[in-house]
Design a protein around this nucleic acid. Structure first.
Lengths: 195, 195
DNA sequence: TTGACAGACTAATAACCATTAGCTATAATG
DNA sequence: CATTATAGCTAATGGTTATTAGTCTGTCAA
């Protein structure tokens, strides 16, 4: 791993824990194992690190949720749908880097319009669009009752997002949160799927 | 208004816009119209202001959402339920102080366990409990289909919370968000209410 | 009238912070 | 081999920050 990547990694950790204003370049340097001025061999300044970080965060998100293709093949039963969705949730909740990106974004969402926009895309837009597509396809296959796919996607994802945020804030509830999410998913399917 | 209250007001504004670490005591003093050292006649330090602020935020929240009584009398029709719920949402979205408290909490939710706990209570616990009680009562009156009241409360409130967060981040979508919330509310009633 | 107190002020301090300048050693390149 | 770039370092700088000490003024009670 290059020094540059090490800087980005450690900075993500620090920003997610203490925020941009709560982190000093000296702290970053110390975690990386260099002195603060050496950071300037790799970045123009603190804000430059922030921008590079958000770029990589976007790339990482795109990679995981950017397209409806990432759901794999279309589920063909209720249990399959639930299983795949739960797997997605588990990945999102337990992946360390994604968790840090989430906390980092939540903290800095008001910093600029760009941050606000990206946060909205991460928290609502992106995943919702993905599920809207899947639900629509499953409607066409007669697995879901006819309804507004993007509205249903919102009904599906919003409680999940809220619960994940709770788990981020209070990790002691992680287990409970995962159970509640599964309960919600089953209820959602019971209400909106056929038969 | 006492100087102490003026300090709390201006600090809430600044913290909601720039966060705790992004706000200096000098900025606070300037907004209040005094010099920074004079703040120490009213508070022990910056952190003391923060704690006093969270106390008043809790009081304000308790006052608005703390008890199921605050819904007024039980709604007796679908339209009445939607109307009252929408009014609550409008109040929450457009009240300036509540909006600032919300942004302030979102920013500082990771600062301590107390902040995390309060944020969870504000965003999920409190309102959900309130609606769970109402939905349960309305089930007993035959207005809602039989189901798990607190699960339904989550299905009801989560999308609303998500949309409000979006409106906080991107005020240009406020109007659209209000429309989407109403759409969600109508859909919710269509699915879970009788007839 | 006197004295005490609340609440403002100025001045000062010690710490911290982001950044720049300039030096050095090592590794890559011609 | 010469040189050029990379990437580390120390030292220093100018700015900001939270906080303390000590002073002054007005108000109100004794």
């Amino acid at each position: 791993m290059t020094t540059r990547d090490k800087i980005l990694n450690e900075t993500l950790t620090l920003f997610s824990e203490n925020g941009y204003d709560g982190t000093s370049v000296e702290q970053i340097a110390e975690k990386v194992g260099i002195k603060a001025p050496s950071l300037y061999n790799h970045f123009k300044g603190k804000e430059d690190i922030l921008n590079a970080l958000i770029d990589t965060a976007e790339a990482r998100y795109e990679e995981s949720f950017g397209s409806e293709k990432h759901f794999g093949k279309l589920p063909h039963s209720r249990d399959e749908f639930i299983a795949i969705a739960m797997k997605k949730v588990e990945f999102t909740v337990f992946d360390l880097i994604i968790g840090k990106i989430r906390k980092f974004l939540v903290r800095e969402q008001f910093r600029s319009e760009r941050f606000a926009e990206i946060t909205t895309r991460h928290q609502v837009g992106g995943v919702q669009k993905m599920y809207a597509k899947i639900i629509e396809d499953m409607m066409n296959e007669g697995l879901f009752k006819q309804d507004d796919p993007s509205l249903l996607a919102m009904e599906l994802t919003s409680p999940v997002v809220a619960m994940i945020a709770k788990a981020d804030r209070q990790p002691q509830y992680r287990q409970k949160v995962m159970q509640d999410i599964e309960k919600h998913l089953r209820h959602f399917c019971a209400v909106y799927m056929m038969g």
